[in-house]
Amino acid sequence: MLGILSRNWWKVLAVLLLLYAIPMAWLGSVSVQVILHETIRNLYFHVTMWFAMIAVFAGSMVYSIRALRSGNRLFDIKAQQFAQTGMMFGFIGIVTGMIWATYTWGEPWVNDPKLNGSAVSLMIYVAYFVLRGSIDEPIRRMRVASVYNIFAFVMLILLIGLMPRLTDSLHPGNGGNPGFGGYDLKNDMKMVFYPSVLGWILMGFWIAGLMAKSKIAEYKIEEDTSDK
């Protein structure tokens, strides 16, 4: 029992962090801003989803690198499942962003570099799955898909991180608007925000890990039945 706990402590940590952060998201005091009013609480959900997505995609890239270096197909399976989970988080991030935008910016989608960058980055990962689907031979698929995964993640970081800072943007922290520090992110808010980010990142890894393990189990069963 203790053995299981020592390997899964981070899952327990994730749950505890979020059990704290989710009620505090509603109950905690937030900085009062015009336009945003109470919706600033969405920070704890929308932004954390993006952080979780990036973390999970980073994990996917790491597995891709390991797949390339070792040639072990298990790493490739893990990379794919992590990418799938990352896309789910990205989708949630976009949808929460659209809901938030409808009430604060007036419409669900505006012509903003960060929004376009995020949509494009999800398109890049859709292309990753298209690529995987178009190659039948497993070893070659692993290699080509892993190369593309690394390429995709680097582009993701560039598109989401670099570009909006240089151009006009409605998002806070980019294009001349003050960042979250300038949004007078009070210490009260930071105390809920950081645990929430960490909690959702860990949850992302948990979900991705579960998906990876189930896929690997399927793969092993297939291998066994094909050998016998």
Partner: peptide, 18 residues
């Protein structure tokens, strides 16, 4: 892959667009 000419735009355009 099997369909090089079709796949190149699919893979490339999301990156090229920004």
């Amino acid at each position: 892959s099997s369909n090089a000419a079709g796949l190149t735009p699919v893979l490339g355009f999301p990156v090229i667009l920004p």
